[in-house]
Nucleic acid binder design. Structure first.
Lengths: 245, 245
DNA sequence: ATCAAGAGTTGCAAAAAACGGAACACTAAT
DNA sequence: ATTAGTGTTCCGTTTTTTGCAACTCTTGAT
């Protein structure tokens, strides 16, 4: 087992709600010998991948890791385009918007745009959500073939309902969730792909359920769809299907 | 030389305006044998630290690296508080705001808040700036002892002017720059520290030069100072000195 | 003051890597 | 067909990494 894999595993610990790590925490989470964990963290510190918080034994990602997220966004033209489109919709309607991508059965936000309304959904970037339980996730799953989804969710309790839900997303041209992940919060999501790089991202708007009626929702779907359609057109995403009006 | 150090060096390449890397680019930048670079990138791919873009040979940071930036922010109470304060000022005045920290002679933004004005400075998160050439950087340097600054800038051309400039920042209680890094853009920055963790961050507002007169500037300084003072008070940052009114 | 428990660090020999060099594919352009 | 540019694979050698156990340091209870 390469030390890179171990270092990677340590970094991944930060992914799930874990703001900092100690030697023993690493031992518990990854089940490696204590001596090993100690030396691993030291090596990662020396390399700048980790830094200690103050003078304690708690570790967090090194500060240069901050730049990586930015580099990731820059590396993908699709993400930039999607970000611009979402920002526009977010500013028009005052609600918070996201750009997300799927990683296995989870989705992560790669960019967020805070709404301007007094009552708005506070963005929670970096939080991973189950793909099948969010509008964003379903919009992305709906872009996969049914067989691929079946393989991905083999043995998963959600495997039964999923095909029908995704079929609806494909038919509507957008994914919708009402108070599903968070009480009082609705979400609209539309996915676009870049045939050149095989990437797929989801454009998503989240808003307080009580603040938007059916008409407002249609307007936002239309605005989001327009942005997505422009991107699909630019990149040649022929599989993109705009919502029916 | 540990492979972690090499991996770290590869990741750091993404820091400076480099959105993706190939084997030969790594060879050129880090001067390592080609065979080595090839195996290093492969190992990093296997560990998930890198991923290829589409089916090309270009590499970018692995998608889970996105979570690290979020974890970093979560790990620091100071950054969260500073973010809230900057967001408030940003929303009030409509100008873009940042929270930044210093790393050697450079500063990086860890969080950004897009302004809402039609004419606003577009945030450029992840871009590293020379500390001595930005308001943000000088606000942070001003919190260091003069000897520390002298050590940090030993042999640097800026070492001569810096003490005087920092003295002014300390006296004013805020740092200011007018069209320094970017033509047409002014910036106001105030630094706060957490005595518990020894961290120091800078709260910064950037705005189009032509849009704000002396009065508006005073208002923003006051608003930023109020947010900073609240944080300093909460955390017991006794060295914090609010601007004179 | 003493002891015990928990956390973190350090020798040691065995095992598993990473290393540099050179040869080998593959592609694109001349 | 040739050349230049890129990326991968195969050697033996050198260097890390690993797991174990012993060791330090702090904390808190007796």
């Amino acid at each position: 087992m390469s030390i890179l894999q171990n270092a990677s595993d340590v970094l991944k610990c930060f992914g799930d709600d874990c703001p900092d790590l100690t030697v023993t925490e690493v031992v518990r989470r990854l089940g490696m010998p204590k001596a090993n964990a100690s030396r691993l963290l030291k090596a990662m510190r020396d390399a700048g991948m980790l830094e200690t918080i103050g003078k304690t034994h708690r570790h967090r990602p090194g500060s240069f890791m901050l730049d990586l997220a930015a580099a990731f966004r820059r590396s993908s033209g699709l993400i930039s385009l999607a970000g611009d489109a979402v920002a526009e919709v977010s500013n028009t309607f005052g609600h918070t918007g996201y750009v997300s991508l799927r990683d296995g059965r989870e989705v992560t936000a790669v960019a967020d745009y805070q709404g301007t309304n007094a009552l708005r959904v506070v963005s929670n970037i970096g939080r991973r959500l189950p793909a099948h339980l969010s509008a964003t996730g379903r919009s992305l799953l709906a872009r996969m073939k049914d067989e691929e989804v079946a393989t991905l969710y083999a043995g998963h309790p959600a495997a039964r309902d999923l095909p029908a839900r995704l079929a609806k997303v494909r038919q509507d041209g957008y994914a919708f969730s009402s108070q599903e992940t968070t009480p009082g919060v609705d979400a609209i999501a539309i996915a676009v792909a870049d045939p050149g790089t095989q990437e797929t991202v989801s454009l998503c708007i989240v808003y307080p359920h009580t603040l938007v009626d059916a008409k407002g929702r249609s307007q936002m779907i239309a605005a989001l769809a327009e942005g997505a359609a422009r991107i699909a057109d630019d990149l040649g995403d022929t599989a993109f299907a705009p919502p029916r009006v």
